[in-house]
């Protein structure tokens, strides 16, 4: 009578891996070979960049920059999420607040963060505080807006069902509203995590003494071209890692969902 389809199609892992990596591999090979014939100082071959990479890694200088960047990014991300999620739940729940707040939020989230960066520097200097602050700003809105949306769209039947069992308001928030909006919240988090890196680099270029952004900017000024590429490469790898981790988190928290449409 009622049967479940339990077959899961196992995709060919090797084929998928090939399909996903072939373009990147080709590009890397081109990068390794073409500059050898180009003789352009601005485009060093991959080999040279990797040598510089190894050198910076062995002296520990690279990790000092990575560490400085990650520390600020993580602190900023943590603060922003700790503010955005509870606030988003409240705003989404109390529809009156949303009516008043929505226009302001539209303005704030659509104002380029690069445009207000100087403002942060002006008030908070070029130290860690201003960088953390700008990351908090940048990561706050995606999660806030997603959380509001998630809470607003919670299935009313689920709320009624829980209420019919006499659940307390706190219980309702923690046992129903937040889990029900978790797909939205996590999507906001994933977006925020990648924004954290982007904003950070911008902030470090404006003024800093450490950090990947500073390293890139500084190397460009000093015409240390391979070093500049090392910075860019490092950022690319960090970006991919951040995406990978947040997608993993999302998938493991949301394994109850029928479809996982999250692209890597």
């Amino acid at each position: 009578m009622e049967e479940l389809e339990l077959q899961e199609k196992k995709p060919n892992i090797l084929l998928t891996l090939y399909q996903k990596s072939i373009l990147i591999v080709v590009l890397l090979i081109l990068w390794a070979v073409v500059p050898l014939y180009l003789h352009n100082i601005y485009v060093p071959p991959l080999g040279e960049v990797l040598q510089e990479f190894a050198k910076l890694a062995s002296t520990g200088e690279l990790f000092k920059h990575i560490g400085a960047s990650l520390k600020i990014a993580l602190i900023g991300l943590a603060i922003s999420q700790a503010l955005a999620i509870p606030l988003g739940v409240l705003i989404g729940w109390f529809k009156k607040i949303d009516t008043y707040l929505d226009p302001l939020l539209v303005v704030m989230r659509n104002t380029s963060i690069l445009a207000i960066l100087p403002l942060f520097v002006l008030f908070l200097g070029i130290g860690e505080v201003s960088k953390i602050a700008i990351i908090v700003w940048g990561c706050f809105f995606p999660t806030l807006i997603n959380t509001i949306q998630g809470v607003k769209t919670v299935d009313q039947n689920l709320i009624r069902s829980a209420q019919s069992m006499g659940i307390s308001t706190t219980g309702l928030f923690f046992k129903v509203v937040i889990p029900a909006s978790s797909p939205y919240i996590l999507a906001g988090f994933r977006l925020s995590a990648s924004i954290a890196l982007i904003v950070l680099v911008g902030a470090e270029m404006v003024g800093a003494f450490y950090g990947i952004g500073f390293m890139i900017f500084n190397a460009q000024h000093a015409y240390m071209i391979p070093r500049m590429y090392v910075g860019i490469l490092t950022l690319a790898i960090l970006g991919v890692l951040v995406n990978l981790l947040s997608t993993k988190l999302e998938n493991s928290v949301l394994r109850w969902q029928e479809t996982n449409t999250n692209a890597v």
């Binding site: 299935d155 039947n157 689920l158 009624r160 069902s161 129903v176 029900a180 978790s182 109850w256």
Partner: peptide, 9 residues
């Protein structure tokens, strides 16, 4: 309820 209202998570 008609819509089951099971908690999907």
């Amino acid at each position: 309820m008609q819509a089951y209202a099971l908690f999907p998570w």
